[in-house]
Amino acid sequence: MKGNPFRGFGYLIRGFGLLTEPGLRSFVIVPLAINLVLFTLAIYLLMQQFSVLVEYCLSLMPDWLSFLDWFMWPVFAILVLISVYFSFSIVANFIAAPFNGLLAERVEQRLRGEILVDDGWKALLASVPRALHREMSKLLYQLPRFLILLLITLIPVIGFIAPALWFLFGAWMMAIQYCDYPMDNNRVSFSDLRSNLKTRRLSSLGFGGLVSLGMVIPVLNLLIMPAAVIGATIFWVEEFAPESSAQIIEQT
């Protein structure tokens, strides 16, 4: 596989380095606020309903499999955590998509040394239909693979490899999720987006894997969305954009 996972890590780290740039701050605040609200709701739901949800899942098992309760409880607990995590991530991505698209656009302008142009709410509203359509494409790509992994997780013995598969799946989906913003701005189709990432698969998995890890770290997970958008845009400009003369600003 081509690419370098450490190079992928670096894009996200550099994304954090640009979060406080004066020309980008206003586009960082909205995704940050959306993450704050939704992750607070997710944590509240888990605190209030976690045991109830796990017990409900166990109640769906036939009585003759009750001897597997000791094994299935942690399995169902992981499934509840994953389901809540993905559900709230999907909602957050739909709400934040237009704002993330604008953030990616401003970052790309900055990286190329172009003048930052603020088109205000008009540009934001014009981007909403395309952004939502693109989010739906990602959801339709993700959902069947998510369900297949759920089935694998529930299969005895084979289910033991599920954690590694979930991590790889999450890393790949995070790479797709955030690299889509700059590529969509440049009219790269969803199928071409996936083809592009496959040509740098290790870099893509490194980037997406670090994003996935960041999302489960308290406080850091609130900043991960805008940082990932910025990092993905740097990834696009440096490795995929057709123009090779982009003025890339290295972060120290």
Rank of each mutant, 00 (worst) to 15 (best):
F39A: 04
L140I: 03
D69R: 07
L139V: 00
G17E: 05
L18A: 01
A123C: 01
V54M: 06
P74E: 10
P129T: 05
A123G: 08
E114W: 07
Q49F: 15
V80N: 10
E21Y: 14
V157M: 11
V37I: 12
T20F: 07
F50Y: 14
Q142A: 12
L58W: 11
L125F: 01
I13P: 00
W64N: 15
L60S: 10
A131M: 03
P62I: 00
V28Y: 05
W70K: 05
C57V: 04
L147A: 01
S137L: 09
R106T: 07
W121I: 11
Q142Y: 10
D63Y: 15
L45K: 06
L32R: 04
G15K: 07
F76P: 00
L19N: 01
F88M: 10
F99D: 13
L125N: 03
M47K: 09
L125Q: 00
R134G: 03
G120I: 09
G15Q: 00
Q142R: 09
I115E: 15
P62S: 11
G101F: 09
W64P: 04
V128H: 08
L46V: 03
L154A: 13
L154G: 08
L41I: 14
N93D: 12
F99H: 05
L65K: 07
D119A: 04
R110P: 01
M47Q: 13
Q109C: 06
S83C: 11
S51V: 01
A33M: 14
A92D: 10
P74Q: 02
F99R: 03
A104S: 15
E114F: 14
S127C: 05
V128M: 10
Q109M: 10
V54Y: 10
R110M: 14
R112E: 15
E108V: 03
Y85Q: 08
N93C: 06
R145Q: 01
V75L: 10
I82A: 11
L111V: 04
S26I: 04
S127V: 06
S51L: 07
A131T: 04
M72I: 14
A33Q: 09
L18W: 02
Y85I: 00
F99V: 06
M136D: 06
